[in-house]
Design a protein around this nucleic acid. Structure first.
Length: 492
RNA sequence: GGUACCCUGGCCGAGUGGUUAGGCGGCGGUCUGCAAAACCGUAUAGAGCAGUUCGAUUCUGCUGGGUACCUCCA
């Protein structure tokens, strides 16, 4: 099995990956809270962990990929009169909370499919695991790391700190937090400002509620991931992923909950993807500067100069390393869109080239190896993609007859374009939305036949007129050696 | 204020103590009736100051600028 290296947030180092059980990987990723349409920000973790899963499977692991859906307990503020996000949206839409979640879940799944991400093995919902969460609260209480107060249950950070280390994941210690915690209302129930809720007593108007030993209420947000990861992956599993914005408090609290209930952090590798920024600022629902994926694919957003296809978005994300921020811009997306077209064209074209017997070029073998190695080095997708562009150059030279490829070369090209580009990077050919319309196709062919006739008679006035009119109608003409080609221009 | 991170050519974005990142755009060329497309080639870097070093974009320090988290956020 190939070596795979992964940066671990817990150790702050790039480590050689070793699974707990040979040949098997348990992966848990914090999924979205579905109270709105999926946006560009959601695409980043989805694609990052998709690459991780595809690569691990390619290396030879069986991967169980669990990604949750948060449908309860995610409050707009942890303290005071924070409203549940789902509940708030349900009021706006005048729907049952679960209708809201269902509505956005379907839209999320659709967008993820367009981006060609593989579905998780299990996609559990917080609301479906209330009993597991209640029993988790019970075991934390039993260990003495939580207390009940006025129907709610809070995690006792101070008590936990006596034996363990709250802050070891995020580097945030209770000491420096204490001096910097703002005074907020509604925390009378808590002993200490950095204690966090495990169970919250529901206010009368809060309709998402479940019975518990302490009150009718709902689970704290951090609880679901601890409960569901343990249920489906065991008390100890390999990789826990999520956005870096979840590092604190969400993952720190999760780690503390795991340790408090089972004496062990439970996770070997913590992995965090960075954010997509817009004009250098984080793109987020709460900041109101986000672009939904639907808007991106259709081009309908004031910030967009054009529409960008799902695969262009995918390549855009892959051309940056997952741990760095990635800045959105029309130029960058357009660059990805064009690069995507070139790569896909090359991936198709090399297959119809003539190959001969003999030794292959060292260059292609090296590119294939370097590309794969880069992926195994903490998912260095930008390097892997760069090698593909290098290989594209070789294909183009061979196409022009300036280079003769062998069957050995062909194998390396298969590694680069079938295995790496298609299978691991998940970049595939998109179907043209209009190109397969038969009627349009035959009509364009008729017009082009007339134009060819005019060209043959050197009647360029007519041929140029036809070309101009077709262009105006959204059909782009290319005169190549093999005859005239056309395609529908998708944008307005 | 605390903690962490970042500053690369017109834009996006990598690796690296000495040797080409890559993409887009620009420029030059091939092809073409012309154009577009496609293809080939190519120029332009690493915030500022100081230090370590034979040599720094890469290591160290300082200064400047920016971002994230500290309330929910992928």
């Amino acid at each position: 099995m190939r070596n795979f290296y992964l940066y671990n947030t817990l150790s702050k180092e790039r480590e050689l990956f070793k699974s707990i059980t040979p040949g098997v990987v348990g992966l848990y990723v914090c999924g979205p809270t579905l109270y709105g349409d999926p946006h560009l920000g959601h695409a980043r973790p989805a694609i990052t962990y998709d690459i991780l899963v595809r690569l691990l499977r390619e290396i030879g692991y069986r991967v169980r990929y669990v990604r949750n859906i948060t449908d309860v307990g995610h409050l707009e503020e942890e303290l005071g009169n924070g409203e549940d996000k789902v509940l708030k949206q349900a009021k706006v839409m005048q729907l049952e909370p679960m209708e809201v979640v269902q509505h956005y879940t379907l839209r999320y799944h659709h967008a993820m499919q367009q981006l060609n991400t593989l579905p998780p093995s299990i996609e559990p919902r917080a609301s479906g695991h209330i009993t597991e969460q209640i029993s988790l609260v019970n075991s934390i209480l039993k260990q003495g790391y939580a207390y009940e107060s006025n129907g709610s249950v809070y995690f006792d950070v101070e008590e936990y700190q006596k034996k363990h280390n709250y802050g070891r994941l995020s580097g945030r210690t209770p000491d420096n937090m204490l001096s910097n915690t703002r005074a907020l209302e509604g925390q009378e129930d808590k002993r200490s400002p950095f204690d966090f809720a495990l169970w919250k007593k529901a206010a009368p108007e809060h309709i998402m509620r479940w019975p518990s030993p302490w009150s009718e209420g709902f689970p704290g947000w951090h609880l679901e991931c601890s409960a569901m990861s343990a249920k489906y992956l065991g008390d100890r599993f390999d990789i826990h992923g999520g956005g870096i914005d979840l590092l604190f408090p969400h993952h720190e609290c999760e780690l503390a909950q795991n340790t408090a209930s089972r004496g062990d952090g439970g996770v070997n590798y913590w992995m965090h993807n960075n954010m997509i920024t817009i004009n250098g600022q984080k793109m987020g629902k709460s900041l109101g500067n986000f672009i939904t994926l639907e808007e991106l694919f259709s081009g309908k957003h004031p910030l967009l100069e054009s529409s960008y296809s799902p695969m262009a978005v995918r390549l855009f994300i892959l051309q940056a390393h997952y741990r760095g921020t990635l800045d959105f811009s029309n130029n960058a997306l357009a660059a990805a869109q064009k690069g995507y077209r070139r790569l896909i064209r090359g991936a198709k074209e090399y297959k119809s080239l003539k190959f001969v017997e003999g030794k292959g070029s060292k260059e292609l073998a090296l590119l294939a190896e370097e590309s794969f190695t880069a992926l195994c080095d903490d998912l260095n997708t930008p390097i892997a993609v760069a090698k593909l562009f290098d290989a594209l150059k070789v294909i183009n030279l061979a196409k022009e007859g300036k280079l003769q490829l062998t069957f050995e070369d062909r194998e390396n090209l298969d590694t680069l374009f079938n295995l790496i580009l298609t299978e691991i990077l998940g970049v595939v050919e998109e179907e043209s939305s209009v190109g397969d319309d038969k009627l349009v196709g035959s009509l364009v062919d008729i017009v082009l036949k007339i134009r060819d006739e005019a060209k043959a008679q050197k009647n360029f006035e007519v041929s140029d007129l036809l070309r101009a009119d077709l262009t105006k109608a959204g059909i782009e003409i290319k005169d190549t050696k093999e005859g005239t080609q056309w395609r529908v221009v998708e944008n307005e």
